[in-house]
Amino acid sequence: MKAYTISGEVEQAMQAAIAVLQHNRRGPYNGLPRTAGWGYPEPYTRDLVFTFFGIAVSGDEQLIGSMRKVLETLASNQTIHGHIPSLVHDGENLGASDTTPLFLVGISIYRQLTGEKDFLQEAVVKSLSWLAHQSPSDRLLVAQLPTTDWRDEQWVLGYGLYVNTLVYACLRMFDEHERADDFLQEMRHFTITSNVMNRHVHEGLTVKNKPYYAFWSFKVYSSERFDLLGNSLAILTGIASPSRAERMIAWIEEECRVMREKGELAADLPPNFFPFVQPGDPDWRSRDEQFNKPGDYHNGGIWPFICGVYVAALVAAGKYQLAEKKLLALTALVKAVNAQQLDYGFNEWLHAQDALPKGQNWQSWSAALYIYAVKCVAERRTPFFEEMRKKSSREK
């Protein structure tokens, strides 16, 4: 297999990403890492756990030590039922749907990295129990309320794809393989397209005649808009079979080509969500006019951390040349800076139609997922997820 040689440009961006994480390693809240260099001093749980993907492959012992501090602090602030708060240091800041499965994913990555097989085992048991009680139908797919995952300005109602990919990853990572196999079967159920729901029919997240998974589904309602993070995680974890992954990637690239032709997309990387919700659409909400216009933020903004996961998904699918191409596009993208004098912005998100940065600079997860993407492309493997895909493939 031909190896990928990291260019000087990519190596320079890698070192800049590590410098960002070092800068953000200690913040004003109990010495915990900050979420961004200046704009977000708080230690947001989901952001920091996503940084583990890159920190764990960086080889930087100080950053790896910060992983342990984050996880131990989260465990100390875990609720009696096993729920993990949205802010690492604040046990009262609750209500997120993705923090608990992310906590479990983070522990698994740390265990794989260090060999500490029983690290925070009591907290693991409690969080797995909490997840087992999040299905209103008392099955396996977990449900959520709107704005409770990373999209605080977008509605996901019921069984969201992104959160359920994380739950599936947790089941595999903690050897709950029988439940994971059953979980895959539930995800393969189609979304319900009839206005009448048979009591023996259970909704899933598979979309008829489309290669990707639904954004969310609940009873007779669903959204078939495309969620890049959820579908990339579906490929990375093995939820999507190799054939489905190949068809999905071809579909994504073709849709992005069309968007570029229409002037809806300025970068050679996918938006986080499309087609964009437009004023007058049934899922358009009044707040969107201020916070979530088409091509902005959660409504189709380009998020570097999600693009990093997409690059990893391309590697997982064996699309090495395409992954190399998208890594170079991401390398150009992370230079964009919003209103500061910096060589690399590692910005939070960029406007889809012109690729101008609109969020905070030196975002920790933007830097960390860049590092992870480089590692995946360079080694043509996806650390921490290789065995999971092998286990998933047995169930296909």
Rank of each mutant, 00 (worst) to 15 (best):
D343K: 04
A352D: 09
E348Y: 01
R287E: 15
G300I: 01
R380H: 09
Y320S: 01
I306V: 15
C376K: 00
S364G: 09
N361L: 00
P279M: 03
L322R: 03
K319Q: 15
Q321C: 04
Q341F: 11
A329M: 06
R287L: 15
F305Q: 05
A368E: 07
A323M: 12
Y320P: 02
E348Q: 14
N299L: 09
V334M: 01
W284Q: 08
A329D: 06
L342T: 03
Y310H: 12
Q360H: 14
H298I: 10
K326T: 02
Y344C: 00
D283R: 14
E324C: 05
D296S: 11
N292H: 14
K375T: 12
P304F: 04
N272W: 07
F273Y: 15
Q321L: 05
E348F: 02
D288F: 15
G300C: 06
L322H: 04
A367I: 04
A339S: 09
P271V: 02
G295L: 11
V337E: 05
K326S: 02
Y297C: 05
A352W: 08
W284I: 12
G318K: 10
K375A: 07
A336N: 15
A323R: 02
L356A: 03
Q353Y: 05
D296Q: 10
V311R: 05
P357Y: 01
W349V: 02
V311K: 04
N338A: 01
G318P: 12
E379W: 11
Q341Y: 06
E324S: 08
V315T: 10
G318E: 09
I302E: 09
E324I: 04
Y372R: 05
K319A: 12
K326W: 05
H298L: 07
E324G: 04
Y372Q: 02
K375W: 08
W362F: 08
E289K: 10
H298W: 14
N338D: 06
G345Q: 01
Y372F: 15
C307S: 12
V277I: 15
P304V: 03
L314G: 00
A373D: 07
Q353W: 08
F305M: 15
N347A: 10
I302F: 07
N361T: 00
G359L: 11
P279N: 11
C307M: 09
D281C: 07
F346S: 01
D281K: 09
Y320A: 01
N347F: 05
K293Y: 07
I306C: 11
N338M: 03
K325W: 09
G308C: 06
P294T: 09
K319I: 00
N338L: 03
